[in-house]
Design a protein around this nucleic acid. Structure first.
Lengths: 395, 395
DNA sequence: AGGGAGCCTGAATCCTCAA
DNA sequence: GTTGAGGATTCAGGCTCCC
């Protein structure tokens, strides 16, 4: 029996992979259990349904052995020009890499991709872990690869990227000149080749894309992997397809796909998602994290000067200050700003009366009469120094 | 013989470490050769001198063995509350980690720190590697650790930061309410705990901090490591001290230090740097990479729309376009902008007549008369579509 | 074919010059 | 004199080319 393209198979990939033709796959993406030694459960918001899978193992050895035999099979299924991406984290990543080197060959190791994201912090001793690792191997030196370009760093100057350079008699690099003494310009510039550290937002717990499957990966991540090493019409295989993100991404990008999962629930969910493949978008994904940045450097340094915490996403609040009466939100008023307008903004912000006190941090000398008026009318504190603030708080 | 604090010892650390008292060190930072299988050479700017070290090995096994015996020694020298940081890259990092787990205990592995940076690129098949790895192990569960806080992500909103949260009956997180149904505010917020992906600028080739030693690390990186796990007065040990960056950072932060290196040149250089410890500062370090960013999202999306490359560091140029006559710089004119002013800016940019043609990309309907006038006066092309640009270029 | 020499590149600094 | 815009320069990874 032969696995059809664009299908999702229920079963352990150790058996299911035998139904896939040898040397027929362009990209294999594996997102196996990470050796977290725990059960993963995620319930739908309304509690109606829950998905779970077990990530408990007898030993590290048995886990690596489990992967080993499956990777050997995967290797067989890859075209000579194909690539394999394995997603893991620090739980067992290094042992996996040593095994991959053995099975796929150290010379075929292309990249250690770091997927980094911001997520909710849990205060613990040590560094907050906010990355996972993806190992990128090709089957041979002659693998398919589509160069992707990123923007230049903002600190790069045009002259430098546009002008061709040569070496002078002292072997120093200098700008090339033509016979007239004019600079020689580059014919084409596309940007910087994509690096191996990818800052891609973690799937927000509330994102529409979410289907309540534990360890669901953002489509954007799969998107990038698929476009790096495949062309339209190529076949993508995911032996641990889970909620089917890889398959959905492949379908959206006009690639064929084969998904495999041991769990019947996972297969059902994948098939359901594939009927209506959606890629969620958000301001964060489209415009980038910096589009949320509101404060300019003058405001930020004012916040820092008084030891405050910077707040970006609220029109009325520039920072938070720790005081005797708890955290106090404040807005910075620069010379030239309309102080009345600022008073209104901070008063309206966080409407639900969450804060006992709010403050305006004036960076210039405000007239005493105006201070009094604003403080009364808006129930605010206007301050220019920290001691002034704490004095006014004490009253 | 006993190694004195604040000293630099010439010799292989395998022997030199024996002069260090057992359980006396708070932090060991190791930056050994990475198994790059090549010689690292760097000459001084004036060519007067050169520093080199060899990173050639018989086999991966002999390299790991070399490290193994030295790490065992290091472990002995660490205080029970001490930590060890090992710097490496993907050449052998995964094999090192497996060995470290064995020597220091998997339970004492704290973090895989990713040091990421931007650097020169090179057109190659595959992803541009722009990270190195630092493994962070403690000697015991009871290790010294100073929590460091980062700024909140710009997309974080105040309500999230300030309101306490609890888990509801389904174990989902919800905002905590008091008896009146009002939100309960957090007492103090310092920011997000520092993560394990560190974006720290690579030591720039032009930086004054450079001392012409190959593979020199930025002081800022060591700064962060030292402040994470030591207090003033503690002892920092670097068994592969090279140019002495670790020792300089330790000295600046009032920690004691012991450096070891096989090369007499390295020891001499370290001692010299320690006489006058300097930490370089720059606009990038102080204000951040975004301080170079000039274009807003409206301009950037205009540049993207015509397939251009964004330019940030030039007042007169917003982007570059590939055309039949080579790359053409252009500036975006939004409705409401002063088009004459923009024409002046782009004309003045890159003064030395480097570009054959410059253009203004008008995002609104400019009067035909005004277009003619600007094109003649400033020798510019004004366009609203790509086809208009290429048509005008053909003439 | 194998190894070494040299080429290409852009980040971020230093430096220069103009306002 | 001071500020800041932008032009010039160095470094090292990975490639290409040449013997």
């Amino acid at each position: 029996m032969q696995a059809k393209p664009d299908s999702v198979i229920k079963g352990d990939c150790l058996e299911a992979l035998n139904t896939v033709a040898d040397e027929s796959i362009d990209l294999i993406y594996l997102d196996p259990p990470f050796f977290s030694q725990r059960e993963h459960i995620l319930a739908k918001r309304d509690g109606s349904e829950e998905f779970r899978f077990s990530d408990n193992w007898e030993s590290l050895n048995s886990y690596i052995q489990f992967l080993n035999v499956r990777i050997e099979l995967c290797k067989k299924k890859l075209k000579p020009t194909g690539s394999l991406f394995l997603h893991c984290d620090r739980s067992a990543g290094h042992y996996i890499k040593v095994m991959l080197d053995e099975v796929l060959g150290r010379e075929n190791f292309q990249s250690e991709i770091i997927w980094t994201y911001r997520r909710w912090s849990n205060s613990k001793k040590g560094l907050l872990s906010n990355h996972q690792t993806i190992f990128f191997y090709s089957k041979s030196a002659d693998f398919k690869f589509n160069q992707i370009f990123d923007a230049y760093s903002p600190s790069t100057n045009v002259d430098q990227i546009m002008q061709l350079r040569v070496r002078d008699f002292r072997n120093k690099t200098v700008y090339q000149k033509d016979n007239n003494g004019d600079s020689v310009l580059a014919a084409e510039k596309k940007g910087v080749p994509l690096g191996d550290v990818w800052d891609i937002p973690f799937l927000n717990p509330k994102a529409k894309e979410r289907v309540s499957y534990p360890t669901q990966k953002p489509i954007l991540l799969l998107d990038r992997i698929i476009s790096l090493v495949t062309h339209p019409g190529d076949i993508v295989l995911d032996p641990f397809c889970g909620s089917g993100t890889t398959l959905v991404a492949a379908k959206i990008m006009n690639r064929s796909y084969i998904g495999i999962d041991r769990s019947g629930d996972a297969v059902k969910l994948s098939l359901k998602r594939l009927q209506n493949p959606v890629k969620s978008s958000s301001k964060l994904l489209e415009k980038g994290r910096d589009s949320y940045r509101k404060n300019n450097s003058e405001i930020e340094s004012a916040v820092k000067e008084v030891g405050g915490v910077t707040v970006q996403r609220n029109k009325g609040i520039d920072g938070l200050l720790k005081t005797e009466v708890g955290m106090v939100p404040f807005k910075v008023v620069l010379s030239g700003d309309d102080i009345l307008n600022h008073a209104q903004l901070i008063s309206k912000s966080s409407s639900k009366n969450k804060f006992k006190k709010r403050a305006l941090f004036a960076r210039y000398k405000v007239k005493t009469g105006e201070v009094k008026k604003i403080e009364n009318e808006f129930n605010l504190i206007v301050f220019t120094t920290l001691s002034e603030l704490s004095e006014k708080l004490r009253i």
